[in-house]
């Protein structure tokens, strides 16, 4: 008894299975990619080096849908209405110049998401308590949710959308896929921006609270596991991908391949994919 009643009935009445047409309309993926002007072998290249599983049809579909929605000309959207306290601000985002009028209250996060179609940066808490909105401004990782867009005059902003070089993923992005450094993926853009900036901080020899000897002269650091963990603690992950995030960052930081650990009980060796 007490079998959980966690099923469809409990959560609303699902439509009668028989009434749902099996031949549902779907977006024609090929057509979308055609419309985007991505043809033949370049489709594969366009998505290239993204997964050791290779290119999947799913990947194409999802990307095609996403790209089709995105603004193609890179222009910012104008504000929907006239604003009481408008501030004109110009900044560089992922290498391209952007100029826009913003409400003085608008954060950089909302400006990216609402006005520049850069929805990769996420709003996890909007109060500087989760790190999902992390972007890199003038070389430093910062929280875009606590940064007013108006203060970004002349700033150089890099978001998750700007990390790949052309078709090639940033090594941290590739390592996150390889080590499964996420599940739901919502904190991931922030985690990755944070990790990318962290590498530079380590090169500079910046200290952290767990640095053993704070007085030692700053020099390029080989970060211990706990050093990486502490420096990544400003990016919360509710799915609990931390150990995989650690491995991904460590692999890029050290240049040494990190094991991916799981075992099956009948085999004595850790399986490495």
């Amino acid at each position: 008894m007490n079998e959980e009643k966690f099923d469809l009935e409990d959560c609303g009445n699902p439509p009668d299975m028989a009434t749902v047409e099996s031949d549902v309309l779907t977006v024609d993926e090929e057509k979308l990619l055609d419309e985007l002007g991505i043809f033949g072998e370049s489709r594969r290249k366009f998505l290239g080096q993204v997964s050791t599983a290779g290119l999947s049809v799913l990947a194409m579909q999802l990307l095609a849908e996403n790209e089709a929605f995105a603004a193609s000309n890179g222009d910012v959207k104008t504000a929907a209405v006239k604003l009481e306290n408008a501030v004109k601000v110009s900044m560089k985002v992922n290498g391209s110049a952007k100029s826009l009028d913003v409400d003085s209250r608008m954060t950089l996060l909302d400006a990216l998401r609402e006005r520049m179609d850069l929805t990769g940066s996420k709003k996890g808490c909007d109060h500087g308590q989760c790190g999902a909105c992390t972007v890199i401004v003038d070389g430093q990782r910062v929280l875009s949710c606590l940064t007013l867009a108006a203060t970004c005059e002349g700033a150089d902003v890099t978001t998750i959308e700007g990390l790949a070089t052309g078709e090639k993923l940033h090594p941290v992005q590739a390592a996150f896929i390889k080590h499964d450094g996420f599940q739901c993926g919502y904190c991931t853009p922030g985690q990755i921006c944070s990790a990318v900036a962290l590498m530079e901080e380590a090169k500079r020899g910046d200290a952290s609270y767990v640095t053993e000897n704070i007085q030692a002269k700053a020099r390029s650091l080989n970060l211990s596991d706990d050093e990486i963990r502490e420096r990544m603690s400003g990016n919360l992950c509710r799915c609990g991908a931390y150990p995989n995030i650690l491995r991904a960052i460590k692999e890029v930081h050290t240049g040494k391949e990190q094991a991916q650990g799981w075992k099956f009980s009948e085999s004595s060796e850790t399986e490495v994919a």
Binding site: S51, L62, L63, N66, G120, I160, Q173, F182, G185
Partner: peptide, 24 residues
């Protein structure tokens, strides 16, 4: 049973995976 990478992984690491508030 193979440990293949997530096929939607690249969308998630490039910020292209659309969550509810991301649809334009």
């Amino acid at each position: 049973g193979e440990a293949i990478d997530r096929i939607d992984g690249f969308l998630k690491v490039t910020g292209r995976a659309n969550y509810a508030m991301d649809f334009p």
